Amino acid sequence: MLRELIKNKRRLFFIGLALLGLILVRAFEDQLFYDPFLSFFKTDYQNKPLPNLDQFLLFLNLLLRYTLNTFFSLIIIRLLFNEKQLMVFSGYLFLFLFLVLVAIFFGLLHFSNQPDYLILFYIRRFLIQPLFLVLFIPAFYYQQLTR
């Protein structure tokens, strides 16, 4: 698989573009997305109250960012493994994981008087970073090796 990928310069170019897309989403996160937790978690947040936030706007921006990251991640998965079924399966996984994580995230915000900031931090991290791509690529690669 890796030899085939290296031979195909066009696929490598588009993988590079998708990686650039992920980098740009991260680089311009302050300008593109409403997220009061960006600055909150950069400070000594353990003894501070949660920032004031518009939950609906936060949800829409988390959805937008997750969708952009998912789009670029699915392109990378499709180009790396060259299997449409794997990309579709990954899309369903991304959707399921988003629904679970966003429900937990907003559940903690809404129903907890003093939510555990560390749990909020890590759930939010999975929502705003392409961490699932980092988990899926080795898993799919190992799956292909064992077939």
Rank of each mutant, 00 (worst) to 15 (best):
L86R: 11
Y141M: 00
G16W: 10
F105V: 01
R125F: 12
F111S: 10
A27D: 13
Q144C: 06
L64T: 09
L131V: 02
F71M: 12
A139S: 14
R10C: 11
F41V: 01
F59E: 03
L62T: 03
P49M: 13
Y66F: 15
G21R: 05
Q85G: 11
R65D: 06
F140P: 08
P115Q: 02
D30V: 09
M1S: 12
F140Y: 12
L86N: 08
N61I: 03
P36R: 02
S73T: 05
L53K: 04
F37Y: 09
L58G: 03
S39A: 10
P115C: 08
V100M: 08
F81R: 06
D35C: 02
G91N: 04
D44C: 01
L109A: 05
L109F: 08
E83D: 13
F96C: 04
L97A: 15
L95G: 06
D44P: 06
L5Q: 09
L19T: 06
D54R: 04
L101A: 08
Y141P: 00
D30H: 15
H110K: 13
P115I: 00
L133F: 13
R26T: 11
T146W: 06
F40K: 04
R26M: 11
I104M: 12
N61M: 08
N52G: 14
L32M: 13
F13P: 06
S39L: 08
L68E: 07
F33N: 02
L53R: 09
H110D: 14
D116Y: 15
E4K: 15
L62M: 05
V134L: 15
L17Q: 06
L120T: 00
Y45E: 01
G107C: 07
L22G: 06
F81Y: 08
I23Q: 12
Q55F: 10
P138D: 08
I128Q: 04
Y66K: 03
M87P: 04
I15E: 07
V134I: 14
Y45F: 11
Y34R: 09
R26W: 12
I137Y: 12
F59Y: 13
E29S: 13
Y122A: 02
Y45L: 04
L60M: 15
